[in-house]
Amino acid sequence: MHIDLAKKKSGWHKAAGALVFGLLAACGAHAAVGMTELPPRGEDGPVTLYYPSAAPERPVQLGAFTLALAPDAPPQPGNGRLVVISHGSGGSPVVHSDLARALVQAGFVVALPEHRGDHFGDTRDAGPESWKRRPQEVSRAIDAVAADARFGPLLQVDRVGVYGMSAGGHTALTLAGGHWSPAEFQRQCAAHLDQDFQSCVGLITSLHGNWLDGLKRWVAQAVLRRYFGSDTAWYGHTDPRIAAIVAGVPAAADFDMATLAHPVVPLALVTAPGDQWLHPRFHSDRVLQACAGACVHLANPPGAGHGSLLSPLPPGLTGLEGSLLNDPPGFDRGQMRAVDQQIVGWFQQWLLK
C-alpha cells in the first residue's frame, strides 16, 4: 500500500537483568526503518506502520518533514511484538517517528492508527466524541496488523504495547482500565476553568487578562454544560491482548481516579513539568497519586513542555498553538532520546517475557 501521509503491584519498577536487557536491546538494532500504510477499513482511518526492514533508507518528504525511511519495503523479522501509538488531538504518524524509530531498532513493529475526526486533517470530533472511539480504534488497528499478509506471520499479538500522548494518553489510560465521563470533564472545567483553560477549550481561544475574559469564561461554561454535562455515562474499554502501557502527558481530569488505582496491565507515565496545555496538577499528577505503588513514573524530563514529547516537533508553530507546543526556552531536546529509550525498555521488560 503506497504511503500517503502529507499529512503494569510490586516489582513493576524493577528493571530487567542487565544481560537480558542488553540482548533484547540488540534485537533488530541494525535494521532500517520501513514505513507503509494499511488502508482504511469501514469507518476507521488508515494505519501507518514503522517496522524493521533490510531495504536501504532514503529521504522521504512527508508534509513539512523529511525522514530517512524505506518506504513500502518488505519487512524482516524483529522481536515478534507490536506496539501501537495513539497520537494526540490533531496529530499524525510523523510526529512520533523518533520514538517509532527507537522501537523499530529494538525489533518492534509500530502501528499508528489515524483517529477518526481527530487527526491533522480533521479535528471536528476532538475531545470526548473522539475519546469514546479511540480505544476501540486501537483494538481494531491490532486486528488490521494481525490480518495483514506481510506482518501477521511476523507477529504474536497476545502481548501488545500501547503508547499514547496527550489525547492519546487519555486513550492509554482507558486501555489501562480507567473509566471517564463527559459529565466529569464538564465538572472539572467548571471547578478549574481558569487554571486549566486550554484543556477545557483547546485552541479556540485563551485568557489574556482583559475585559473579554469574562465573556470567554461564560461562553466556555455554557458550551461545556450543553454538550458534556448531560452525558453522565462512564466509558471504558480494555483489550486482553494489551500487556503494557505508557501514557505521555495524558489528558486525565475526567477520569474516576479510583479506576486507575490498580491498572489492569503495567502502566508507566511520562510527564512534562512545564506543560501549559494539560497542567500536571489536574492531569498526570492526579493519575500518579491515584496509582502510587501500582504504576511507574518513567520520566519527567526537566524543562519539558507539552509538545516536547512530539518528535520531530512540527516546524513554524506560531500563536496559541506555538505557545503550547513549542519547546520552553532553554529546554534541551536532546534528552528526549533517553526518554525514548526508557519507553523502549519498558516495552522490552513487559512484552518480551
Rank of each mutant, 00 (worst) to 15 (best):
A167V: 02
D72S: 12
D340M: 01
G117W: 04
K7P: 02
F120S: 06
E184V: 05
V219M: 10
Q335Y: 04
G80F: 08
D213Q: 01
D285F: 02
Q105T: 14
A191G: 10
G169R: 09
G305W: 06
S230D: 12
P113K: 10
H2T: 09
G127P: 11
A55P: 03
V95G: 01
L207N: 07
L82F: 07
L215P: 00
R225P: 00
D4P: 00
D254R: 07
L313C: 02
H297F: 02
P280I: 04
D148H: 13
L212Y: 01
Q348N: 14
G319F: 06
F120A: 11
R116L: 06
D98R: 10
L269S: 04
V110A: 05
V287Y: 08
M165F: 14
A25R: 15
T48F: 09
P266N: 02
E321W: 00
D327N: 15
M35V: 15
W131M: 15
L325V: 14
C295V: 07
A64Q: 13
G214H: 11
G121P: 04
Q195T: 12
G319H: 07
Q342S: 13
I142F: 08
V94E: 15
V249M: 10
A141G: 08
P301I: 10
G161A: 09
R41H: 09
L269E: 02
Y50W: 13
K7G: 09
A191Y: 00
Y51W: 14
A251L: 08
